[in-house]
């Protein structure tokens, strides 16, 4: 859930900017600028999704990465941020210290799906992965 510090909520501010770009600016431009308006709206949508779900994502991904790390090797159990957890797991893989490759791939798939739900939930590979999970 997004926390509203003031009104309108930030997600609605972003939506107002998107609507303005699409309805008022896009019809007046073409070529490269029209393409860049699409890119700009995509960026605003990413930010909106991140405001709504980013905190949850960060927390659950950090927890899952910590679990993977403690499953795969014995190490420090200190709380770490996302980047350093990724770096630590990368190091474990690089050094061939992975015990169960299939389990690791499954866990990483779950994390990537959560990240994609923010970055680009329309992506074909995202839907392909969701479909293969249903099987």
């Amino acid at each position: 859930m997004s926390r509203t510090l003031s009104n309108p909520p930030s997600v609605e501010l972003l939506s107002a900017v998107s609507t303005f770009l699409i309805n008022d600016i896009a019809p007046q431009v073409n070529g490269q600028s029209a393409f860049h308006i699409k890119v700009a709206c995509n960026i605003l949508n990413i930010v909106a999704r991140e405001i709504e779900n980013g905190a949850d994502l960060n927390e659950s991904v950090c927890e899952a990465l910590s679990n993977i790390l403690s499953d795969q090797k014995t190490g420090s159990d200190e709380a770490q941020d996302l980047q350093s957890l990724k770096a630590e797991l990368s190091e474990v893989i690089k050094n061939d210290q992975i015990k169960n490759n299939a389990e690791l791939l499954d866990a990483l798939k779950m994390l990537t799906l959560k990240q994609l739900a923010i970055d680009n939930p329309k992506y074909s590979g995202y839907h392909q992965a969701l479909k293969s999970n249903e099987r």
Binding site: L105, L108, K109, T112, L113, Q115, L116, D119, N120, Y123, G125, Y126, Q128, A129, S132
Partner: peptide, 11 residues
């Protein structure tokens, strides 16, 4: 788009 590549790699 890095996460797109990551899911492609996993698939």
């Amino acid at each position: 788009r890095v996460s797109e590549v990551e899911i492609d790699l996993i698939n």
